[in-house]
Design a binder for these strands. Structure first.
Lengths: 174, 174
DNA sequence: TGCAATGTAAAACGATCGTTTTACATTTAT
DNA sequence: ATAAATGTAAAACGATCGTTTTACATTGCA
């Protein structure tokens, strides 16, 4: 595993567990097993490192959402939550932590959320046989809600959201 | 307005807009119009100040949720979002920023979320004439989802959530 | 009248921040 | 064989962090 990969993985873990601002450069170098000189050579600076973490996380998360039904979206979220834990959406969290004032971060978040919404719209269209923007928005709200409610409600929140989505989809299909 | 009230109001605004970690004590003293000596006399320290901000916010938010129907819960959230803006849930955000490692903050968040859930359960029970924990969990997910989706989707997310809740409630009533 | 309380302004505290630099070792490719 | 690239360890950078303290002014009550 090359230094960039190792750094990005370590950074994602620390930023996710302790927050972007609360994670210092020396914690990052210690976790990644490299000197600060090497960190800066590969990452540029802390904000760019966070942006790269988000881009990598987007890639991994969106890969799991390559499914053909709305119900499978919730199954994928259940898997994600089981594997990665429940600390809320890292994209929204890092944007909020920086007040939206760090361009690299704000752009990575915007790109992810646009892709996220697009994916939901197309999966809803597959399930229904036609587009339904309002239903897609409701599914998006349920996924976002499951992600954040799971922080304090656990996996129950995800399965409740999944059942709610099934009802809305069935209703729209008939 | 006494110093404690002025400080808490200024702190809530800054913590919400820029994040807890990113807001320094000197920004707080400048916004509240007081010396750091007075700030520490009233607040104890930064974490206790954040905890007091959260307790006050819980009071104001929960007061708006003193309603008699699930639909009114979403109407109340629409009002809240219009008045206070959309930067996500300050409770979850501050807990995530501190990794859950700051006891005062973690406790204030836990207390709020417990009260939030309880309120939803009782409003659902009023609407249905009986308790329905699963439906209440779905309403909680929709409210949490609307709060966080509104950050990047705007008010559409809240009205979509409101419509979804109406469908689920109607279905449970018949 | 005088003392306790409450406030400000500003300096100082040691610690830590993100970042750069200096000095040196090791690997890699021509 | 040699020069470029890539790494480490560690010191140093100025800035800022949360917090405490010193010195002094104002207020309100006994």
């Amino acid at each position: 595993m090359d230094m960039t990969t190792k750094l990005t993985a370590a950074a994602e873990r620390l930023f996710d567990r302790h927050g972007y601002m609360a994670t210092g450069i020396d914690q990052l170098t210690a976790a990644a097993g490299m000197s600060s000189r090497t960190l800066y050579k590969h990452a540029g600076n802390k904000a760019q490192l966070m942006a790269r973490v988000l881009t990598e996380r987007d890639r991994r998360f969106m890969a799991r959402l390559e499914v053909q039904s709305v119900d499978a979206l919730f199954a994928a979220l259940e898997d994600w939550v089981r594997v990665e834990g429940t600390r809320g959406c890292l994209f929204l969290r890092s944007r909020a932590e920086t007040g939206g004032d760090t361009p690299e971060i704000a752009e990575a978040v915007a790109a992810h959320k646009a892709a996220f919404q697009q994916r939901i719209e197309s999966v809803v269209a597959v399930d229904l046989g036609h587009e339904d923007p309002v239903l897609a928005e409701q599914v998006l709200v349920l996924l976002e809600g499951a992600t954040h409610a799971a922080v304090y409600r656990g996996a129950d929140a995800v399965s409740a959201a999944r059942m709610a989505a099934a009802i809305l989809i069935e209703r729209a299909q008939s």
